[in-house]
Write a protein that binds this DNA or RNA. Structure first.
Length: 550
RNA sequence: GCGCCCGUAGCUCAGUGGAUAGAGCGUUAGGUUGCGGACCUAAAGGUCGUGGGUUCGAGUCCCGCCGGGCGCGCCA
């Protein structure tokens, strides 16, 4: 469609209806957007408004010239039904019923592939998220990052990207030692360390310590904390993986910090930075000159005691990821980590990478509330409520929807009572219900020996209601493309609600299965089947179930 | 003090510089002898925190201020 407009614009210029573009303007931004409802059009463009200044012409005159040229275009006639110029210079287009019919036939041929598109951008994407250290079960503070990360991956994949889901964790640091010491203390009945872990899961771990492990710690007492820590953290990690799977979130790679040390990635990063003259030593520590790239402070990579900082490991990880063939690194971090964004991107740039290929998305805070009261902490256990508890109460579909519908940069109140509402007053179930309703209709028709028509050819003309549903179905690829580019899913949930609404209205106004009109019934079954495909594709994009009955 | 994020309907939130700022919930008033009423229609509800600026056009971009959150380690 943009192509058609661009050609019409070029034709208008070459025919002399419009003056040539002044040099230095470059390709005009030929946008095709969705017009507001009152415009009663399928597509709208504001090219004329944007060209008003460079062409030094009234927007309405430009729009008229482009519209005339579009009207005369042979390629447009089968697609564009009517063209209208609206104040102050919009070009509104309406698609022909024939184009809608052909497009819907293509949708039904594509089946489950409908809604997958190819958007421009970096192709091999690594998305690192959750990355909570395995020292305790995931709690509701991890919920948003887990869902948003997975949603982002799904949207990128639907946009044609190849995505690797990666979980990074610390497997040998002080936190793991602390976990080992805590488990040991409970097992031995001694006092917990000062800042030891004291949740119920620590007691469970202590009770489950295998005999071989107890024997091993007895054989080498100075290694006891480490041995138990390793064992316990692996147990906890496996529990985290199981929790995530219950959310429908699976990872392709579980990456340990120790790998970065063992395989020399941090050393490699240091050499790279050293060669570029980006490092200096001071007070016995090794520093990265982050201020050279606009940071407000320089940053320590290796402490004076010889140990690498977290930042040191981070930059080794950057090299590792790029060496594995990714050309786009996305990190989902809690908003509290925003202070570390600049140094990481600076280091990536200093190592010779394009800083725009290293992207940190900050996930804003969630306040879980019930009747206006904060419920993040469990009163009973005195610790954060676990992710498992939350999911048990509200369900995966509702939780996914809740996070998908909100911008990640906005801190939100998660109303548990609203989210767990199982009725159609809850948008997620309203949409799921639409899918179930269509499935029911198709089922009923099949029982009566009635199947959808092979083609919708010639069935939409004159039926504004059916055309309205068709237009809504056909918006999906644009919605997916926008989502993939924006790396956000709010548009997808909004679309899902609108599609369901349009379908319900269609259902009210048009009887699908009518024994008195078999041909019409078959055509409507085909239309409704396309709607079902669009709903299933949309819900699948969100990781939400599309049931055949509820 | 400096930096980042946020402030939009009673509530929870959308809103790639474009047309009369939207959705869900809640409130109010209606609708069905039919394929799933878990549905549909309509109404009320807004100084887009605030004051300037840029622009043909600003909820959106820039600056100041107010309010809220988070950061500012040789911690992780």
């Amino acid at each position: 469609m943009e192509q058609l407009l661009r050609e019409a614009l070029a034709a208008a210029i070459s025919s002399g209806a419009l003056p040539a573009l002044p040099p230095g303007i470059g390709e005009p931004d030929v946008d095709v957007a969705r017009p507001p409802q009152q415009a009663k059009a399928d597509l709208a463009s504001s090219v004329a408004l944007k060209l008003a200044r460079p062409l030094r012409m009234a927007p309405l005159a430009i729009a008229a010239a482009v519209a005339a040229s579009l009207e005369a275009s042979a390629g447009a006639s089968a697609v564009i039904g009517s063209i209208e110029v609206a104040h102050p210079g919009f070009i509104n287009l309406r698609l022909t019923p024939g184009f809608l019919e052909r497009s819907l036939d293509a949708v039904r041929t594509a089946g489950a592939a409908f809604g997958r598109v190819e958007v421009p951008g970096r192709h091999h994407v690594n998305v690192e998220f959750v990355s909570a250290n395995p020292t305790g079960p995931l709690h509701i503070g991890n919920a948003r990052g887990a869902f948003v990360g997975d949603l982002l991956c799904r949207v990128l994949e639907a946009g044609g990207r190849e995505v690797t889901r990666e979980y990074y964790f610390n497997d040998f640091g002080s936190q793991v030692m602390n976990l080992g010491a805590s488990v040991l203390a409970i097992a031995n009945g001694t006092d917990l360390p000062e800042d030891g872990y004291r949740g119920a899961y620590v007691h469970e771990l202590a009770a489950e310590l295998p005999d071989e492990l107890v024997a091993a710690t007895a054989a080498s007492p100075d290694q006891a904390t480490s041995i138990v820590g390793q064992w316990a953290s692996e147990r906890v990690r496996a529990g985290i993986e199981a929790s995530l799977e219950r959310l429908g979130v699976t990872f392709d790679v579980w990456f340990t910090e120790s790998t970065l040390h063992r395989e020399g990635w941090i050393q490699r990063a240091i050499e790279r930075l050293q060669a570029g003259g980006h490092l200096f030593e001071q007070d016995g520590a090794l520093w990265f000159r982050s201020t050279a790239f606009g940071d407000d402070k320089d940053r320590v990579i290796r402490r004076s005691n010889g140990a690498y900082t977290y930042f040191g490991a981070d930059i080794g990880y950057v090299i590792n990821k790029f060496e594995r063939g990714f050309d786009h690194l996305i990190y989902l971090w809690g908003a509290d980590h925003h202070g570390t964004v600049a140094r990481n991107r600076n280091a990536a740039e200093a190592m010779g990478y394009d800083r725009s290929a290293v992207e940190m998305l900050l996930i804003a805070w969630v306040r879980f509330v019930r009747d206006g009261q904060d419920v993040s902490m469990s009163k009973r256990a005195g610790e954060f409520i676990t992710l498992d508890d939350l999911l048990e109460e509200i369900g995966v579909d509702a939780a996914r929807w809740y996070f998908a519908a909100r911008a990640t940069t906005s801190s939100i109140d998660f109303d548990i009572e609203a989210a767990k509402d199982p009725t159609a007053a809850n948008p997620v179930h309203y949409v799921r219900y639409a899918h179930a309703r269509i499935s029911s209709i198709l089922r009923k028709a099949a029982e009566a020996g009635l199947g959808p028509a092979d083609s919708l050819d010639g069935t939409l003309a004159g039926d504004e209601v059916a055309q309205g549903l068709a237009r809504e179905i056909l918006r999906l690829p644009d919605v997916v493309g926008d989502a993939a580019l924006a790396q956000e899913t709010q548009g997808v949930t909004a679309y899902a609600t609108e599609l369901a609404t349009v379908f319900h209205a269609f259902y009210r106004d048009r009887r699908v299965v009518d024994p008195e009109a078999l041909e019409t019934s078959r055509a409507r079954l085909a239309l409704v089947d396309a709607a079902r495909l669009a709903l299933a594709s949309t819900l699948g994009l969100l990781g939400i179930s599309a049931p055949d009955s509820m």
